[in-house]
Amino acid sequence: MAKVDFYLLTSRQPQIRERFACKLTEKAYRLGHRIYIQVEDQEQAQKMDDLLWTFRQGSFVPHALMNTEEASETPVLIGYGGEPESEMDLLINLCAEVPRFFSHFPRVAEIIDQDENNRHAGRQRYRDYRDQGCSLETHELSI
């Protein structure tokens, strides 16, 4: 069963969830992992695509949107509405609900910021993962 890490962010900075997702993606990529970032829709996918190029000066995280020509050759995919066709090591979930395919990943990352709606949805996802028998760990981060 998947190991799920909940990252609780205390900062109220704009786009803090997405920026932390970029940092986490970069770290996992440098460790040789393949990462899938699950987002809500095309608009959020495009924002994450842009942010991965610009979140930190000097960073390089090769990535592609799912269902594009580059997707099969890229270690980081951004998608919505479905799961990646290739095997991935880490699922970073930026959606309000638990992806139905989460159990296909050995690791899942959930990022919770100070937005009340996100915190409420995060609590529900925590219960859902717990009910599925996942190993859960919480990390409170002051960033």
Score class of each variant (00 low, 15 high):
A45I: 04
H139W: 00
G32Q: 02
I16A: 11
A121E: 10
E83W: 04
V39R: 01
H33D: 07
L65K: 08
R107H: 09
Q38R: 08
F105E: 01
G82T: 14
Q42K: 06
Y80W: 12
L51G: 05
E83V: 02
R123L: 11
L9M: 07
S142E: 14
E40G: 15
M66T: 04
E110S: 06
R119T: 12
D128E: 10
C95V: 11
F6Y: 15
V76R: 00
K23Y: 13
D113W: 03
L141Q: 07
S86A: 15
Q38T: 07
R107N: 05
E87S: 14
H33F: 10
D50T: 11
S11T: 13
D41K: 09
D128P: 01
I112G: 01
E69L: 09
F102Y: 15
Y36G: 01
V4T: 10
R56L: 14
E69H: 08
L141R: 06
A45P: 02
F60T: 04
K27I: 14
A2H: 07
S103E: 12
L52A: 11
K3F: 11
D5A: 06
P106M: 00
H33G: 05
G58D: 14
F102V: 06
P62S: 00
E87N: 13
A121R: 12
H104N: 03
Y36V: 05
E85P: 02
A28G: 14
L77V: 09
C134Q: 08
P84M: 11
M48P: 03
Q57V: 15
T54W: 09
S72W: 03
M66P: 00
R56W: 10
Y126V: 07
P75E: 08
E73V: 04
L90I: 15
N93E: 08
D50G: 03
A28V: 10
E140K: 13
T25N: 12
E110D: 08
E110Q: 13
E70Y: 00
P14H: 04
T25Q: 13
P84Y: 08
R17E: 12
S135W: 03
F6E: 07
A64W: 01
R17F: 06
L9W: 05
R123H: 04
S11C: 09
C22I: 14
H104K: 09
L8H: 07
P75V: 06
R125G: 06
G81Q: 11
F60C: 05
A109F: 05
A96V: 11
M1D: 12
L90E: 00
I16Y: 01
G133C: 07
E140Y: 13
V108G: 02
K3E: 14
S59N: 12
S103D: 13
L136V: 10
V98A: 10
G32W: 00
G82H: 09
E116V: 15
P14E: 07
S142P: 03
D128K: 12
F6G: 12
E140G: 03
Q114N: 10
R107I: 01
E69I: 10
Y80S: 02
E140P: 03
E43N: 14
A71M: 02
L90K: 02
G122H: 03
H139S: 00
N117Y: 12
